[in-house]
Design a protein around this nucleic acid. Structure first.
Lengths: 237, 237
DNA sequence: TCAAAAGTGTTCCATCTACACCCATGT
DNA sequence: ACATGGGTGTAGATGGAACACTTTTGA
């Protein structure tokens, strides 16, 4: 009986696989989750929209590869977070020949406006166009991952600007979670979990007046599980 | 500027990668989480212990590949659950040349005893031997995944036999979660979440007497998120 | 009748939601 | 003054932990 092996068995069948990395880069823009898409110019699936990414380099780490490709090809350099999602291996997921794809979730803070090339755009994730290959499913997986991690980690840091008011922050959470978020309760929850802190600054009130808002910031710029046993609940009705 | 592409650019560098699939197959045995390991007979890392798996087949889906290899090579056919973990792509993770690895968590119910080959054994996951390559980290990732999914999904079905008493079930949960689990509260929680139901049967009491236990079963044999907003807490002290 | 194990009922507590009310500012 | 938005206080709801108590069996 053959034995499992993690290295090529001498004389065994040598086979290797094309491998690409793809990212669903999400940003909250105008209170809606958007995803960065690129329009395919040539077949197959010419004219459809695809996720940015491309072939893995011969000596390149997976995460380094997607970072590089986002920087080179769609000019996105200010990712606040990047994490691996699923690896897709269905033999016929692409008509051009077998290609494995390792997918990533990327996040961009709400206040930056990366200059993207002409054939690239931010698309509302609730209204995806006709997508190439299996890319629509990847976007959905990315949104689900973001949603659940917002509940028990400090991942909000990756959605929000460096400094923000609580009502701004609530807007980001509302967009990503897809339900109402009470700014007043959000503050207490995130302060109690020690995710955010007041900077002491205040921001001037808007044109209609109103009490000036305190400015907050996240305490850590990297992912931490702040409360594995607590979550944000959607409103009862 | 080059454009992102998910298919080989004509004339672009053609590169492809060895790809293996590996599984951390976990089973609770004698109230402890065990993992199925296989002892490497030849270099590199001869004598160290490795996870079962092997090369991806040319036309094979990832999940089909790991299932096949577990059946062929370590004679494990009764997985109650299988899910993908991370894909590892560090260029030098193996000294034999670059190999990507897609890793899986496999679960086997507590009451089956798969006959495994001689060079294969069930090892307590708390006491791993010297492991080959990066396989120890994969086991840890698998345990973490199991622990968190037990809290908000019905994944217990994959750990427990088809029928069980509540004190048996609590043993599985204790082992996998790594903390005390009150059988009495576990019952109410899982019944409320509609994960388990009483079969109506009772099991005779043990040699020392005691009230005979009711027999329960899981209502679904597949993974379901039963309560995204609730978890099992560790005891306060 | 007693020990042992299972199961129930009840209290306690943490943590979230809901919402009334107070605060600070512009017009 | 009063409208507007920010912030606090607090009551209510939920759901899990803790644990005493009851039930059912064997010796």
């Amino acid at each position: 009986m053959p034995r499992p092996t993690s290295v090529p068995v001498d004389g065994g069948p040598a086979s290797c696989f094309d491998h690409e990395v793809l990212a669903a880069v999400l940003q909250v823009r105008q209170a809606q989750v958007h995803v960065l898409l690129w329009r395919r110019a040539r077949p197959p699936h010419a004219g459809r929209w695809a996720l940015p990414g491309g072939r893995l380099g011969a000596r390149e780490d997976l995460e380094a590869s997607i970072s590089r490709q986002l920087a080179e090809k769609v000019d996105v350099r200010d990712l606040s977070h990047l994490e691996q999602l699923e690896t897709l291996g269905a033999p016929h997921r692409m008509p051009t020949g077998r290609t494995l794809a390792t997918t990533y979730l990327g996040l961009v803070p709400g206040d930056v406006e990366p200059a993207v090339p002409d054939d690239t755009r931010w698309q509302p994730a609730d209204d995806l166009p006709r997508m190439a290959f299996d890319h629509a499913a990847i976007v959905e997986a990315a949104r689900r991952r973001l949603r659940s991690k917002l509940s028990y980690t400090n991942l909000g840091f990756a959605l929000a600007p460096a400094r923000f008011t609580m009502s701004e922050l609530a807007t980001y959470y509302r967009a990503a979670l897809g339900h109402e978020v009470d700014a007043t309760n959000l503050q207490r929850i995130l302060v109690r979990r020690q995710q955010i802190e007041a900077t002491g600054e205040r921001i001037g009130s808007g044109p209609a007046g109103g009490r000036p808002a305190s400015v907050f910031r996240f305490r850590s710029p990297t992912l931490q599980v702040t409360d594995a046993f607590a979550v944000l609940h959607p409103p009862a009705r």
